[in-house]
Design a protein around this nucleic acid. Structure first.
Lengths: 122, 122
DNA sequence: ACTATATTCAACCTTAAGGTTGAATATGCC
DNA sequence: GGCATATTCAACCTTAAGGTTGAATATAGT
């Protein structure tokens, strides 16, 4: 039973929710307090506080306490592995297509002359 | 109430599950039938069938019917917008850091002269 | 000390996610 | 036709996700 990219599990989970992605978008412009973050949404402050905890667990945001205010800031590091995963899958798919292409080209090259040598140019 | 990247909603949801990511990894090497896909996992065939439907809804995989066999193939297109979102957030964060850096540098340049004029360059 | 503000904690509710099992459907093979 | 194989459909169960409300905690301001 294979397990995929186990460490960044929390990252994908955190990114699955539109509100949380929206929060990250906000924070990518600079840090903000919890109340500030919550203001644009129609949900309760507590709900946003929960979203923040999920993002924190995924280490996508960091918290700096200054008195009663908690300042949240964006940490893009975990996004790196997510982006890498995506890039890898796209690469694998493309290279598989290229291999197929090369195979077909080789067969095309082999048939016209009825000359059955292998294609050495690639 | 802002809504983030609403169209690719299904993409993020589909990617949130490790089994589904694992299925995508398998399919990035080439197409496979449902039973083949399900074999490595300890869960039931039906469970995998459900995961496949989720991936299909996100248009991350395509289905080609050949008799009783259904061949699934990877479609990397939706990954593009996900990757773009990640890239955008990282870019915004970096450029914000750069702006901050420039600001500090400007202040450094202003102070040594003990010249207390207001910073008009912002 | 008192009151207002910022944030979390705890208990609860509703719904959807992920899984199971058993039956239905469609195709392939003899 | 009859039987095996490939896949989905439908009904159900369990748990976690996302939300609410009300109280607790901590700090700020006067």
């Amino acid at each position: 039973m294979p397990r995929a990219s186990s460490l960044s599990q929390f990252t994908w989970l955190a990114l699955a929710n539109p509100t949380r992605r929206s929060i990250l978008e906000r924070l990518s412009h600079g840090e903000a307090r919890v109340t500030e973050l919550a203001r644009p949404y129609s949900m309760s402050l507590n709900a946003v506080s929960k979203h923040i905890r999920v993002l924190e667990r995924a280490r996508l945001i960091r918290r700096r306490r200054a008195g009663r205010d908690h300042f949240l800031s964006f940490n893009p590091d975990p996004l790196t592995s997510a982006a890498a995963w995506i890039a890898a899958q796209r690469f694998l798919w493309m290279s598989r297509l290229d291999a197929l292409d090369a195979l077909l080209q080789a067969e095309d090259a082999a048939t016209p002359k009825s000359n059955k040598r292998k294609d050495k140019s690639r």
